[in-house]
Nucleic acid binder design. Structure first.
Length: 430
RNA sequence: UCCGGAGUAGCUCAAUGGUAGAGCGGGUGACUGUUAAUCACUAGGUUGGGGGUUCAAGUCCCUCCUCCGGAGCCA
C-alpha cells in the first residue's frame, strides 16, 4: 500500500494510494459526492461514486463532518476540473474520528472570533501558507548565517537588567529577586562576538509596552547578528545581504504559498541588494517635501516610515540618527558627535521598520559616561563594560523583527497572523 | 494613557421608539461532475452587564465591562 501526501500525489498517477488527513468540506449531488480533503500539504478532491464503492463507504457522506479525521484510499487520476490538477477516485474511507460541529465554517469570520479559535484557524489555507513562509524565512536566515561563518549563540531569557532602559519589561519573581524577560539578546550577542567573531542570536523577546497596533506583539522573535571588527557600513552590507537572501529563497521555494496568499511577486522580485542608504537628514528632507508633520530631531513615527518607504521599491536603510533618540550603547559619528551610528531598515509597501541596529560604543570611559547620562545603574552592566576592558574592538550588529518580515513578505496586514500563537496585551489564550 | 469604532442566533450582519430577521453553518430530504454547489423544509435569541426615561427600549439617557485599531514606544 502506497501512503502519500497530497503534494507528492503526482508521482503516483494511475496507482492506488492512501492519503491521511482531515475533511475540509463535502458536496453531494445524489449518486456522486465529493470529499474535499486536506492533509497539511494541500487540498485534494476525492470522488465517491455510488456504483463503485460499498454502501457503508458511500453513506459516509451523511456522517463525515468538517475536520473529521479520515484515511482515504483510491486511484490517482489527472483531472483538470479539480483544484490541484489531481483527483482521487475513492475505493475506501477509514474514519479515525468524527469531528464535533466545527466552529470555523467556510464563510467569512471576524478576526476576534478567529483569534479565539487560533488553534483551529491555523488549519485554514491562508494561515497554513503564512506559517510555511515563516518557516522558510527562518530556514533561509539560518542558512545565510551558516554559509557566512556565523555561529548561533543562545542568549538567556531571564535578565537582571534592562538593555536600553527605555522599554517596559515583564518583571518576574526569580527566587525572591526581580528578574526581567529579555527584550533583546544584544548585550550577550556582543560578548559572544568577542568570543566567536561572527555570531547571531535567535529567540523570543518580550516587551510589556501597551501597544495595540497591527505591528506589535508582547512576545516576538528576533534575529540578532553581532560582528566583531565591523563598522556601520559593513553592518549595512550584512543587513541587505541577509534580507535579499531571505526574500529570494522564499520566492524560489514558496510558489504555492504565495499563490494562496495572492502575493504580488513582482514587488518581491525587486528586492535585490544593494538597497538605498540615506541619512537621517536626507530622510527628514523627504518628509519635509512630503508635507509630513515631522520635527527634526525626533524619531520617525509610523506614518513617517510609510512615507519614506513609498519613495523606494526596495527596503531603505536610514543611518546616522540624532543620538538623543537612540540607545546609550550606540557609537557616535566621529564626524558629528550629535549623531549616533545607528541604522533602521524600512520595508516597502508600508510594512514599516524591520531592522534596527548600528555600531556599538567600544570605548570604556565613553560607555560609562553614557550609562550614567541615561540614569542607568552601573552595577548590572559591569560584565558588559568588561568587554571594553579586555580587547575592545569596533563591532556592530542589528536586530531583525521576524514577524514584521513575515508580514511584509507574505503581504499580511496584521502581525498577529505571522506567528502561530500570538501574544498581545489582551491575548494569553490559546 | 489618549483618540476613535464596535458588542443582536454557532458565525457574518439587518431591524423609523411599536410582534427581533436574513445569509452562512447545523438537522431532514431531493439531485451522477460539484468548485464557498443548488433546491425544499426545519431547529436555533436573557439584543455585553447594571440603572433610568416611556403606555412601549435592540433603538433614547447614565454608568460599567469587553473587544477592535490608531497615537505614543518600538522590531
Amino acid at each position: 500500500m502506497i501512503i502519500s501526501t497530497i503534494d507528492e500525489l503526482g508521482k503516483y498517477e494511475g496507482q492506488e494510494v492512501t492519503v491521511r488527513g482531515w475533511v475540509y468540506n463535502t458536496r453531494s449531488i445524489g449518486k456522486i459526492w465529493f470529499l474535499i480533503f486536506r492533509d497539511g500539504t494541500g487540498l485534494l478532491q476525492c470522488v465517491v461514486v455510488k456504483a463503485e464503492v460499498d454502501s457503508l463507504t458511500f453513506d459516509l457522506e451523511g456522517t463525515l463532518t468538517q475536520e473529521s479525521s479520515v484515511k482515504v484510499t483510491g486511484l490517482v487520476r489527472k483531472e483538470p476540473r479539480a483544484t490541484g490538477g489531481y483527483e482521487l477516485t475513492v475505493k475506501n474511507i477509514t474514519v479515525v474520528q468524527i469531528a464535533d460541529e466545527y466552529p470555523i465554517s467556510p464563510k467569512e469570520h471576524g478576526t476576534a472570533f478567529l483569534m479565539d479559535n487560533r488553534h483551529l484557524w491555523i488549519r485554514s489555507k491562508k494561515q497554513n501558507a503564512i506559517l510555511r513562509v515563516r518557516h522558510q524565512i527562518i530556514k533561509a536566515a539560518r542558512d545565510f548565517f551558516d554559509n557566512n561563518g556565523f555561529t548561533l549563540v543562545d542568549s538567556p531569557m531571564f535578565t537582571a537588567n534592562a538593555v536600553e532602559g527605555t522599554s517596559n519589561l515583564f518583571e518576574v519573581d526569580y527566587f525572591d529577586r526581580s528578574a526581567y524577560l529579555t527584550q533583546s539578546g544584544q548585550l550577550y550577542g556582543e560578548a559572544s562576538a568577542m568570543a566567536l567573531g561572527k555570531i547571531y542570536v535567535f529567540g523570543p523577546t518580550f516587551r510589556a509596552e501597551k501597544s495595540k497596533t497591527r505591528r506589535h506583539l508582547t512576545e516576538f522573535w528576533m534575529l540578532e547578528p553581532e560582528i566583531a571588527y565591523c563598522d556601520l557600513d559593513e553592518n549595512m552590507d550584512w543587513a541587505e545581504k541577509l534580507v535579499g537572501y531571505i526574500v529570494q529563497q522564499c520566492i524560489g521555494k514558496c510558489k504555492r504559498e504565495f499563490e494562496v496568499l495572492e502575493r504580488d511577486l513582482s514587488k518581491l522580485e525587486a528586492i535585490v541588494p544593494p538597497f538605498p542608504r540615506i541619512t537621517y537628514d536626507e530622510a527628514a528632507d523627504i518628509l519635509k517635501k512630503a508635507g509630513a508633520d515631522f520635527e527634526y530631531g525626533n524619531d520617525l513615527g509610523a506614518t513617517d516610515e510609510t512615507i519614506i518607504g513609498e519613495n523606494f521599491d526596495k527596503p531603505v536603510m536610514i543611518h546616522r540618527w540624532p543620538a538623543d533618540v537612540k540607545a546609550f550603547y550606540m557609537k557616535r559619528d566621529p564626524n558629528n558627535n550629535e549623531l549616533a551610528l545607528g541604522v533602521d531598515m524600512i520595508a516597502p509597501e508600508g510594512f514599516g521598520e524591520i531592522i534596527g541596529g548600528g555600531q556599538r560604543e567600544d570605548d570604556y570611559d565613553t560607555l560609562v559616561n553614557r550609562i550614567q547620562h541615561h540614569d542607568l545603574p552601573l552595577k548590572p552592566f559591569k560584565w558588559y563594560l568588561d568587554l571594553r576592558k579586555y580587547g575592545s574592538v569596533p563591532h556592530s550588529g542589528f536586530g531583525l523583527g521576524l514577524e514584521r518580515v513575515v508580514a511584509w513578505i507574505t503581504g499580511t496586514q496584521h502581525i498577529r497572523e505571522c506567528i502561530p500563537f500570538p501574544r498581545t496585551m489582551s491575548r494569553l489564550e490559546p
